[in-house]
Amino acid sequence: MKSHPFRIFAAYYYKWNKLPPTLSFHSHPQYEVYYFHGGRCDYLLGDRIIPLQSGDLIIMNGMTRHCPKIDRSTEYVRTTFSFDPHLVQLFGPELLACSPLKPFEQLRNHHIRLSPAAKAECEDILQRINRFYYSNDVVHHYRLLSAFYDLLLLICEQCREDMESNRSTATDRERYVQNMIAYIEEGYMEDIELERMAADLHMNRFHLMKVFREVTGLTVFDYLYRRRVNQAKILFYQSDRNSVTDVGYMVGFKHLSHFSRVFKKQVGMTPDQYRKLVRELSYTAYN
């Protein structure tokens, strides 16, 4: 049976206890959820040092530099995954009405010490996510989306008081990149030129490219093309009425050959192959 072609997480590790050779500060443009199962660890998040306890949950906007500082004498176990925020379009307008990403947008980076009941609920949801994440069944993919949505609502519930009383501040570098991403988000369907972007954001072109690369790990155009491809995947996923050419134009590619080349490089198959696979799996799920 074929794997479902649409994964909702950019990176995913469940109850992961393996250690990389080195641990260093890093940042990225995706939102991240980090859950600490056990061990001894201080989490470095920007200028904060957070001593962790089993059951602690951290949400991050990704652009603040972060890194765990662990005691290697004990087993270090965590669940962590990152995701592109625009992918919540898959939930549809009715489920988005409650703003499930509001904690990430308003608090940016937030440490939550869960109560025993909330800890048990969170671990149950994470277990459900893991149960369906690697499944080849397309129905399980929708159950994965449901579990992920449930986790976002749990986070909203846990952050409600802090969102009412708190206003998080971003560093200058994060603010610059947030403005760049907002600029791309507003105009990724059209041509984006670095000179015009820098002028519109009142930044030096070379400083803009340097800061974006340092914070996200991507060039501006790498990010732009990935955003376009992800939107194309969403459009194929939501409807089979649009042709590959139509979708390419809708997400900002002017030439079908360029769209196909970039799409295949990122996804591992051509847009037409991806579209046919989504249609086949959707048909299998409902027949």
Score class of each variant (00 low, 15 high):
Tyr134Gly: 15
Arg261Thr: 09
Gln178Cys: 08
Cys159Pro: 01
Ala182Ile: 01
Leu201Trp: 01
Arg7Ala: 12
Lys102Cys: 06
Gly187Phe: 03
Pro93Cys: 10
His111Met: 00
Arg72Gln: 11
Lys265Thr: 13
Glu157His: 10
Arg227Leu: 09
Phe81Ile: 03
Asn109His: 08
Asp150Gln: 11
Glu186Lys: 13
Pro29Asp: 04
Ala117His: 06
Arg128Thr: 05
Gln266Gly: 03
Ala232Thr: 02
Asp200Ser: 13
Phe81Glu: 01
Glu185Asn: 13
Val215Glu: 06
Val139Glu: 07
Leu208Gln: 07
Glu185His: 10
Asn61Glu: 12
Asn166His: 08
Val267Ser: 04
Leu19Gly: 09
Leu194Thr: 13
Ile155Cys: 00
Ala97Gln: 10
Arg65Lys: 11
Asp42Trp: 05
Ile112Asn: 09
Glu75Lys: 15
Ala170Met: 15
Phe104His: 00
Leu107Lys: 09
Cys159Asn: 06
Lys69Met: 12
Gln89His: 08
Phe91Ile: 03
Phe253His: 04
Asn136Cys: 11
Leu101Cys: 05
Phe91Tyr: 15
Ser73Lys: 10
Ala182Trp: 04
Ile181Ala: 04
Arg72Gly: 07
Glu174Val: 10
Tyr223Thr: 02
Lys276Asn: 12
Met250Gly: 00
Ile129Cys: 12
Ala182Lys: 14
Lys102Ala: 09
Gly187Lys: 14
His66Gln: 07
Ala10Val: 12
Glu186Met: 07
Pro21Val: 07
Ser27Ile: 00
Leu201Ala: 04
Gln106Leu: 13
Ser24Glu: 14
Ile59Met: 03
Met203Cys: 06
Thr171Pro: 06
His255Asn: 10
Phe212Arg: 02
Ala232Asp: 05
His207Pro: 00
Pro29Lys: 02
Arg143Ala: 11
Met197Trp: 01
Ala120Gln: 09
Ser146Ala: 13
Pro21Arg: 08
Leu45Gln: 07
Arg275Trp: 05
Met189Thr: 10
Ile50Pro: 00
Asn136Trp: 02
Lys265Glu: 14
Asp222Glu: 15
Glu185Met: 03
Met269Ser: 09
His66Asp: 05
His141Arg: 07
Glu280Ile: 04
Met180Trp: 09
Ile181Glu: 00
Ile129His: 02
Pro21Gly: 01
Tyr31Phe: 11
Glu32Tyr: 04
Asp172Tyr: 15
Ile70Cys: 13
Ile184Gln: 03
Gly55Thr: 02
Gly38Cys: 07
Ile58Ser: 10
Ile112Leu: 15
Lys15Cys: 06
Leu44His: 11
Ser146Glu: 14
Asp246Phe: 01
